[in-house]
Design a protein around this nucleic acid. Structure first.
Lengths: 340, 340
DNA sequence: ATAAGTAATGGTATCGGTATCATATTTGTT
DNA sequence: AACAAATATGATACCGATACCATTACTTAT
């Protein structure tokens, strides 16, 4: 039975005394029960239950030089794009008794550096980072950390350690190709926000551009620098800008779903039929892209899969997969719904 | 400068040697610099930078009996309802050098118990719980933990320790009253999911019921037990069930925004005008309630505020507020948009 | 029968900080 | 000038686990 507020938690020593064994035997019961004879194990387990003993992680970490902690620093929590990844990661780790420390740099490099120090102080088993575009300073800091560093959501050319994600360039290229070949839209525009802090949208634009150049199509792109948020409202603005500049386009590839949804709403408001008059596609497959009468054609990112891979890397149950290449490309899916 | 992979991180002792002082002085420079003379402090700081020293949290925690960790166990991450709270909490704590461990019970009591043990092992400064409805077993487990236990998002009758949230009962009552008095809808139905694992919806229903009884209005409620998810699809089903049972109703109060959005879409699909033919309100003010051509009338929960209060409690910068009552009611806002 | 091996357990040092108390120096008071 | 108080620093023990090596009791192989 656990103790009241002002008392201390019982220690391994106390459990050992109660069970009539030594500390180290208690430790073995908890960490490698196979080394302990069934009889002894039972005595110890009984003592543990009786005292409500919960081992102190700090002591174990200090002694073994190994914490049971994984730290994740992600650039944003609000947009909820990382949620499926975090969710899966947290759930798998939890099954292995590993805790997840989450910190959120809110797209600020300075904040990230400060937080990184705090995370290093925990001597985590692994460090998960969503901000895959590394400055040299950041790279050199991270390469010396001494735990598994896993960059997620994007595939940098040279992973610091491991990377799990997909290529935004490919995604941009594929969607353009899909619109052009599969759906037979021939005049495709790109609508995006160039956010200084998130170059992924830019990579998708490069994919679009590359396809267009390859097939000698005209590049029509509107860059919504001003807002930089990719909001629904931006989508409405963007649609109008594009129609003004190129009245003859038949499809718009938006760099994000929220933009796309804004564009769809605005198109409908103007009396345009989607996709007959204008087709619109997005990126991300956020929770609300499907339903609400929107039913967006988009690219689905395999967020959960990323989380599962990250967990595997940390737990170390599939080292063999990484002998050649420490980067895993989980790919993406083009989901055709009714807007394109 | 930090070391390469196979080396150890430098220790406080090494910093002390390099600076020509004792360990404890280094510790003071980091924890209470005011106790150290400026000259010494400078020497030590120089040594810290030179070695790239980052203190080991586990050792500090073990020695002081105080980790710099707060643990949060929330019932779900997917719905993103807790995100603003977690986000704010994490950001304030981070400024104080406190890390947030997040775990997710996925609405399973068994999982929660297992995770709670793992969290206790960290000897956290505070334990934040979203699952405010306590079984006696859970209560007795939690009351002995020995750190600040903070229940969030709801206000239990008897907080274990602290509570920050709002009354779902009041919210249900207020919205019904608002629809009845302010908006002058006289035949109001309630559409909800009774999820065995989340009794908050049920509390809102009780609020609705109480108001209706008080004003001798007929209680019209449809309970979508089957799905239990409160999905968009459930909303469409629910709307039809209600219209079938009570064709003359003029407003529906949905227990959640997603349900409400489903109901709005279905109403429009059937050619009903919202709110003229039927008014619909939700609960939660999720990110997509506003926009998408939905523009839902709903109850906005002050999630960020909850996070801020929780952080204050943990940091302990406002003990005075809690002398009388350890529960903080942050309230909620009724947001009138175009669906009611 | 003896050497070698395995299983089960324990003793002791140690991880890297902080608490506590002690000491030395400086400053302030009357 | 003498003593108290404040400031600055250090010595030592200790937090609660695990690592490492040692020990004992039994097996198994030759």
């Amino acid at each position: 039975m656990p103790r009241s507020l002002d008392e201390r938690w019982s220690t391994m020593k106390e459990v050992a005394n109660l069970a009539g064994v030594s500390k180290i035997t208690v430790s073995r019961v908890l960490r490698s029960p196979k080394l302990v004879s069934p009889g002894t194990r039972e005595k110890v387990e009984k003592a543990i239950n009786q005292l409500g003993y919960v081992p102190e992680a700090a002591a174990g970490a200090l002694s073994s030089g190994q914490s049971q902690i994984v730290a994740a620093n992600i650039s944003t929590l609000s947009g909820s794009i990382f949620l499926p990844t975090i969710n899966r990661l947290s759930s798998v780790l939890s099954q292995h008794g590993i805790q997840l420390i989450l910190s959120n740099s809110e797209y600020s490099e300075e904040t990230e550096f400060r937080q990184l120090s705090a995370l290093i102080a925990q001597r985590p088993l692994g460090l998960v980072l969503s901000n895959a575009f590394n400055s040299p300073k950041r790279r050199s800091m991270l390469s010396r950390i001494g735990c598994k560093v896993i960059e997620i959501w994007d595939l940098p050319d040279q992973p610091i350690d491991y990377a799990v994600g997909f290529s935004n360039f490919d995604a941009g290229y594929s969607m353009t190709q899909f619109l052009f070949d599969q759906c037979a839209y021939k005049k495709i525009a790109f609508l995006g926000t160039k956010q200084g802090f998130d170059r992924r949208s830019e990579m998708r634009f490069q994919g679009y551009k590359n396809f267009q150049i390859k097939y000698k199509n005209q590049i029509r792109a509107v860059d919504l620098n001003a807002s930089g948020k990719g909001s629904i409202y931006d989508g409405t603005i963007g649609l109008n800008q594009i129609l003004e500049k190129w009245p003859d386009i038949d499809a718009i590839f938006c760099s994000g779903d929220v933009l796309a949804i804004g564009a769809v709403c605005e198109a409908k408001r103007k009396g345009l039929r989607v996709p007959q008059d204008i087709a619109i596609s997005g990126f991300g497959d956020i929770e609300f892209s499907n339903g609400y009468g929107i039913d967006l054609t988009t690219i689905k990112v395999r967020g959960e899969e990323i989380g599962a891979h990250v967990a595997s890397i940390i737990i170390g149950d599939r080292e063999e997969d990484f002998i050649e290449n420490k980067a895993i490309d989980v790919g993406y899916d083009i989901v055709r719904r009714s807007t394109a």
